[in-house]
Amino acid sequence: MTLGFIGTGTIAEAIIDGLAGTAHPVSAILVSPRNADIAARLAERHAHVRIADGNQAVIDGADTVFLAVRPQIAAEVLGALRFRAGQQVVSLIAATSAETLRGWVGPDVTLTQAIPLPFVAQQQGVTAVFPPTPQVMALFDALGTAVPISTQAEYELAGVGSALMGTFFGLLETASGWLAGQGMAPEAARSYVESLVGSVTDVARRHPDRELSVLRADHSTAGGINEQLHAQFTAQGGSTALAHAMQSVLARISGQGTSPER
């Protein structure tokens, strides 16, 4: 099987690097030359990666084509290309509906949408796949865990969930920065907070049958400091702010809102 990538950015690089560490049957990978540095890096690292002459050459030479261009330029890039009837096309383009995508690539392709995250480079993490085409599910299962999504609405919500990464790191940044500001060595503050959060996440994974509110209560002694911090965080609007932020991302993904100015 030959894979092709239109757009060679961070996620495309993570997928290609991740696949190199698996037994998934890929005979060749074609990458577009648009991002010359990343394309050259991939071709140097992996013998089966070849830089195509252009985007149309990627489509013509690949069985499965991944769309990995930024949404701001997707219409311009994809509108000039010709896909084969029945060709497997996997869109990694954020905040773009299947209807819009078909307007760019044509109605006759087999279209799947997916949300891989950078962790696929280490065969870790989850990738939402809609609809859960067997071929695409198998590929992302080799790169961690493929999560089958059955409706467009659920896929949009998975997109909102994927947007939590920056906020999660922001919480670690704030917490470790506060500890360091109070006198703890910065390296120790970061290590302590990262290890604590890793352990808490592991508890949640090992108890999928227990409500998160129950786990929170189990790890918060009545009248203790865990209960105090969460109560203050909520009272100061932390939980509400997160919910509002997620709602704004959903509005953007579903086409009911606009992208922030950059």
Rank of each mutant, 00 (worst) to 15 (best):
I11C: 01
I11D: 03
G18N: 08
G18V: 00
P25K: 12
V31D: 10
A43T: 13
E44D: 13
H48S: 15
H48D: 12
N55G: 05
Q72M: 11
A74W: 07
E76D: 14
E76C: 10
A80H: 12
F83D: 00
F83H: 08
A85P: 12
A85G: 11
Q87D: 05
Q87I: 09
V89Y: 04
I93N: 04
I93E: 03
T96F: 01
T100W: 11
R102V: 06
W104I: 07
D108I: 04
V109Q: 04
L111K: 06
P116V: 01
L117Q: 09
A121D: 07
A121R: 15
T127C: 07
P131W: 05
P132Y: 05
P134A: 05
V136P: 01
L139P: 03
F140W: 02
D141T: 03
D141N: 13
I149Q: 05
T151A: 07
T151D: 03
Q152V: 11
L164H: 06
M165W: 06
G166R: 06
G170F: 06
G170P: 08
G170S: 08
G177S: 10
G181Y: 08
A188P: 02
A189P: 00
S191T: 09
V193S: 01
S199V: 01
T201N: 03
T201W: 03
V203R: 03
A204W: 01
A204E: 01
R206P: 00
P208R: 01
E211R: 07
S213G: 12
L215C: 03
R216D: 02
I225A: 05
I225H: 08
N226L: 05
L229H: 11
T234P: 04
Q236G: 07
G237F: 04
S239V: 15
S239T: 15
A241K: 05
L242I: 07
G255L: 05
S259Y: 14
S259G: 10
E261P: 10
